[in-house]
Amino acid sequence: MKLLELDNLQVSIGPVQAVRDVSLSLAPGECRALVGESGCGKSVTAMSLLNLMPPTAQTNAARWDFAGRDMRQLSEREWRRIRGNEIAMIFQNPMTALDPTQTIGSQIAEPLRIHKGLSKREARMRAIALLERLAIANPAQRAAQYPFEFSGGMLQRAMIAMAVVCEPQLLIADEPTTALDVTVQAEVLSILRELRESSGTAMLFITHDLGVVAEIADSVSVMYAGQTVETGSLQDVFSREAHPYTQALKRAVPNMENPHRLEAIAGTPPDLRHPPKGCGFAARCCERMAICDQLPPNFPCESTAAHQARCWLWHPEHPARWRESEQ
């Protein structure tokens, strides 16, 4: 039984088709990384999963189930019960995502007050306890302080505390380490990993940093131009990458074997106001074929059942498949 099943999510904001086809699934306790360059629709996907897109945005999905419920049918009232309670979110920049006029403690305690109906006192005690668990010294005093008195790493820990305080089933982390120093990044990652192990929360970890992915994720979805182009386990995607985009992405990351050769991906992502007719990556792809410009690769194109790539190269009739199977 999957916790989240999302099939063909589409979000358009005015003329921009920010998300064109995102399909994701998460098992309870699983950590899935959603990887892609900036502007590819990762954050829009995250916000849509909380139904927090502005009213001007149009959201559609072929299937959108969470914990056995059809999320497309939920009223705003029901959504409120879910946000912060069953699905919580960690934001990218803790400096701006925490309210500057409220104490850290009250901000962490707020979800408890709303969802669990705890008294002010009780909620505060729980918040302090959580801060202590997240290795913040003097948690009682710290809880009474304001965001501007915290350092970046501590703020992100407070942000995490705010997200996990209600023990959600799904935690969406939207680039939680991007705005932080490298040393603090490691710290935050280890906290997240620990949390996941101790509480069994499923996590959707959004990032553009492949190194971070390797450290925390069980499975990976790669996004490009508003679509998930490759989905699979960490090993599948990292060592048997199937989509040319993933391959290009990997070549753009420094590695030990070949520290001096880095390849940038030539070109820019397509304009999502007028997405290309065929494959979104075709214009930058080194494996481009004529059909790539003509038809989108919308078919279940998989190398194995759990490892899928949205690419004509993986079409059953593609000659390369013959080659591979011969090997």
Binding site: M47, L50, L52, R80, R81, I82, R83, G84, N85, A88, M89, F91, Q92, N93, T96, A97, L98, D99, P100, E110, P111, I114, H115, M159, M162
Partner: peptide, 14 residues
């Protein structure tokens, strides 16, 4: 348009 407003909504504040 601020992040903290979205973050508060994501907590279920309304």
């Amino acid at each position: 348009n601020a992040d903290f407003n979205t973050a508060a909504k994501a907590k279920g504040v309304h």
